[in-house]
């Protein structure tokens, strides 16, 4: 099995590579369009800022490439946000795979103790698709984010933080998680494994 992790100007891509290695899977971190196109599965990870990252993707024509992929693709964190239509972060036009809008958490700390970013372990529920098998019962997964995707027709998991938001999205061959499966212990490993086995 050929797994490509898209290499771009985002942070901590190696964590995904290491997480796959722990599952006994050797992935390739690459920006080569041909390698990405011919891979069995593609992972689009990301930690960073939306505007500059989209700019980078456009400059390197990775935006067109990602949208055109036919094999299962998994976006992670910023990857999910960039696969949406638009992000409030830098008022950025994104890839538009999912119709959902990306908004900033409004800090309502004074009333409810919410902080921004949401940093830490929260539960996901309403789980749909094969990304989440039946053994995953409202599990805790690890989040670090200040922006979230709204809930829409592509939502396959939700999380509650200041309000309900999309913890995962799915449309055709495209999957995405706002949380970091590569950092979410055994639960995250299971979700990565489920993606690989799609």
């Amino acid at each position: 099995m050929n797994i490509a992790i898209i290499k771009y100007n985002a942070g901590n891509i190696r964590s995904v590579e290491f997480a796959l290695q722990r599952l006994g899977i050797q992935a390739e971190i690459t920006a080569d369009p041909e390698r990405i196109k011919s891979a069995d599965k593609v992972i689009f990870p990301g930690v960073g800022e939306a505007f500059n990252t989209m700019k980078y993707l456009r400059e390197h024509k990775l935006d067109e490439l990602i949208v055109s992929l036919k094999q299962p693709v998994l976006g992670i964190c910023l990857g999910l946000q960039l696969m949406c239509r638009h992000s409030e972060e830098g008022d950025t036009e994104c890839l538009g795979i999912f119709d959902e809008e990306v908004k900033r958490f409004i800090n309502v700390r004074e009333e409810n103790g919410y902080k921004v970013p949401q940093m830490g372990w929260n539960t996901i529920s309403g789980l749909q698709t094969m990304l989440f098998d039946a053994s995953l019962d409202n599990p805790y997964v690890y989040f670090v984010h200040s922006y979230y995707a709204t809930i829409g027709s592509h939502t396959i998991a939700t999380t509650q933080y200041t309000q309900s938001f999309s913890a995962a999205l799915h449309k055709n061959n495209f999957y995405a998680t706002q949380f970091h499966p590569e950092k979410s212990g055994p639960v995250g490993a299971q979700i990565l494994k489920n993606f690989i086995e799609l």
Partner: peptide, 25 residues
């Protein structure tokens, strides 16, 4: 397989870059 923080003696951007590249969260 969980997040981790690393610290101690980091004083330059280049150090931070190297640690991030090594897989530090």
């Amino acid at each position: 397989n969980i997040p981790f923080t690393v610290g101690g003696g980091v004083s330059e951007l280049a150090d931070a870059d190297a640690l991030l590249a090594a897989g530090c969260d």
